[in-house]
Amino acid sequence: MILKRGASYSLLFLASFLSLFPLFWTISTSIKDRVDTYSLPPKFFSFTPTLKNYISLFSLEKFWQIYSNSIIITLGSTFICLVIGSLAAYALARKPRFRGRTPLEGLMIAIRALPAIVLLLPIYKLSSYLGLYDSKLGLILIFAGFNIPFAIWLLMSFFEQIPVEIEESARVDGASTFKLFTRIILPLAAPGLVATGIFVSLLSWNEFLIPVIMAGENSKTLPVLVASFISNRTLDWGPMAAAATVALIPIVLLTVVIQRWLVAGLSSGAVKE
């Protein structure tokens, strides 16, 4: 007990207020009329909500294309991360030593450690040779590559919790490795797969630097659209807040669902060998 109970609660309430206020402010700005947005003192609750900003956002020529790009790229890269990541995570969780383990982990950590721009410069050049610049497939592959380490770290912690004895008895009953993995291991790790999937899709959904470099008009994602509002000379905060809200709401909803596993995901890779 460092602080008195009252002081602890005041601190928690203050910190909660500071954590949530920007979120509240974005959402409330997104449903305000221009006049209310620019009024001083700021209007916190006493305004008539309007959907104007959303209507002007949704009527942007490319909005729905960009929105579906974001969803396709997020789902595609998450799927790859889960399939490929679960294979590797299973090997890493069950087999402590094999040739190539150390360099593999080295590469995984390099992604966590290096600023992405260092790798994205050459990737940009390489993908224009391969015709993968401004393509959804290219973005899916690159997103997957950058997120696989996080998927592996998280999945490993779930595979490690499955007792080896279960596998042994299945093996005695004559199950092949493939059957063992698909029929026994994966179902047992299902909550882990869901949690990892949601966590990895969050990373993809939020990603900005990769698409800002790799996406042109065809494969632009939501964060790039949100960012593009800022380069307009006339800053129109209403539609901007609507765009930010459209990006933020799925996250808030998802994180309520995976609250339980979130903590493991958020610190993954930080303290594991």
Partner: peptide, 15 residues
């Protein structure tokens, strides 16, 4: 308290 670290950085920057 962990909500802020989950939110899209670009949207946070804008806000």
């Amino acid at each position: 308290l962990i909500t802020p670290m989950l939110l899209t950085p670009v949207a946070v920057g804008l806000t």
